[in-house]
């Protein structure tokens, strides 16, 4: 896929195909085939496969990552959740409250 097309994409091909970023050619192809069979004519799935089909494609996609965002708020939203240590109490209490409400 052309460089200028790739930089305008915001998809995560691994996530779309439901595979880990360590997946090799065979695993990627299998995931694409399975999903293609289930969702016929799905362009996004085909595109995801084309982006990472070979080792060179994957390297190119990674060199052109991360995708740009137009608003810092989106950067914040894309940041994975940050866990804080709080001890077991709040976990137990939340579950008890949920069980009581049910």
């Amino acid at each position: 896929m052309n460089t200028l097309d790739i930089i305008n994409l915001t998809i995560n091909p691994w996530k779309l195909l439901g595979i880990s970023e360590d997946a090799g050619d065979r695993e990627i192809e299998m995931a694409w085939r399975n999903l293609s069979a289930a969702h016929r004519k799905n362009d996004t799935i085909r595109q995801a496969y084309q982006l990472i089909a070979t080792k060179e494609d994957r390297a190119k996609f990674k060199l052109l990552s991360p995708h740009r965002v137009d608003d810092p708020e989106k950067i914040l939203n894309e940041l994975p959740p940050q866990p804080l240590y709080s001890g077991p109490g709040v976990w137990y209490k939340s579950l008890t409250a949920l069980m009581k409400s049910k």
Binding site: P81, P83, W91, S94, A97
Partner: peptide
């Protein structure tokens, strides 16, 4: 809603970065 309390105790609200 049932997990809001747990969430506010164990997830950073990213205020500083915001």
């Amino acid at each position: 809603e049932e997990w809001q309390r747990l969430g506010s105790s164990i997830l950073d609200n990213k205020e500083e970065l915001k």
